[in-house]
């Protein structure tokens, strides 16, 4: 069953085309990677699919809902981990989860129970009552991850989920994402980290200059093929620099 579909989605900021006709289809229970260089249009695609911004042209559906026509309807059913945002500076992680629960209409005891569970999973129980402005970037990222999954949505959009996390927590998050997909949910991961996409995703869409230029299933690559090869073959990397210091 199709969970997410876009057809010729276009978005420009002034003269810059962030998306130049993105068409893709993501099934339920997929862990789909949007892989592309900086500025390829990955974040814009996520913002369009979650109704944060509207497209100039084209169409999209998430769980059968048009995010342009019913942005709140989409955001009620999905979870979002934005790349740029951090938890509110003067709220604690516990209060942030209470805020998330309040705007999503969750019961208090349900929020409290999931707060404790996520704090244990990501090892930040002792920081639950610390103002977010005093947390490290990694602890803030843990808070944002937990906030995106707190209501256990059917579809989750996550932008660079492993940024700022230590290796142990990275492994836990990877395992969780795989398990979450296997439980029947859809996860869309935006990243420019080829290794993360290859290890995590069931299917990877390579985005370049606002278009989907290739789709790869990492598990079906032969022994002498890598996702990096496919990425380099499809992406204009600009002038080559061999790493001279």
């Amino acid at each position: 069953m199709t969970a997410i579909r876009t057809d010729d989605l276009r978005k420009a900021y002034g003269d810059v085309a962030a998306l130049a006709g993105l068409s893709l289809s993501i099934d339920s229970s997929e862990l789909y990677g949007l892989l592309g260089p900086n500025g390829a249009g990955k974040t814009t695609a996520m913002e369009l699919l979650t109704g944060q911004i509207v497209a100039d042209a084209g169409s999209a559906e998430v769980l059968g809902v048009d995010p342009a026509a019913d942005p709140l309807g989409v955001r009620e059913r999905v979870g979002i981990l934005p790349e740029k945002e951090s938890p509110p500076s003067f709220s604690t992680p516990r209060e942030y989860f209470q805020f998330v629960g309040a705007v999503r209409g969750m019961a208090d005891d349900e929020v409290d129970e999931r707060t404790e569970r996520w704090a244990e999973r990501l090892s930040f129980t002792e920081k639950l009552d610390t103002l977010s402005t005093d947390l490290s970037r990694g602890q803030q990222q843990k808070t944002m991850i937990a906030g995106a999954f707190l209501h256990e949505p059917e579809v989750v959009f996550i932008d660079e989920p492993l940024a700022n996390l230590d290796p142990i927590v990275q492994e836990r998050v990877k395992r969780f994402l795989t398990n979450y997909r296997e439980a029947g949910n859809t996860v869309v991961v935006s990243t420019h980290n080829v290794d993360v996409a290859a290890e995590l995703c069931s299917r990877v869409g390579i985005v370049n200059a606002g278009e989907l230029v290739a789709e790869v299933e990492p598990s079906s690559l032969s022994a002498d093929e890598t996702l990096l090869d496919a990425f380099v073959a499809n992406v204009d990397a600009g002038e080559e620099w061999d790493g001279d210091a």
């Binding site: 509110p88 709220s91 604690t92 209470q98 005093d134």
Partner: peptide, 30 residues
């Protein structure tokens, strides 16, 4: 690491709006 007791729900009960409660907490704590 400034730690504070949870106050969001108390403020939410008073003002009845999550954004308003968070805004007032921001002013109080900044």
């Amino acid at each position: 690491d400034r730690s504070v007791g949870p106050a969001f729900r108390r403020w939410l009960a008073r003002v009845g709006d999550p954004v308003a409660a968070k805004t007032l907490l921001d002013v109080r704590r900044s």
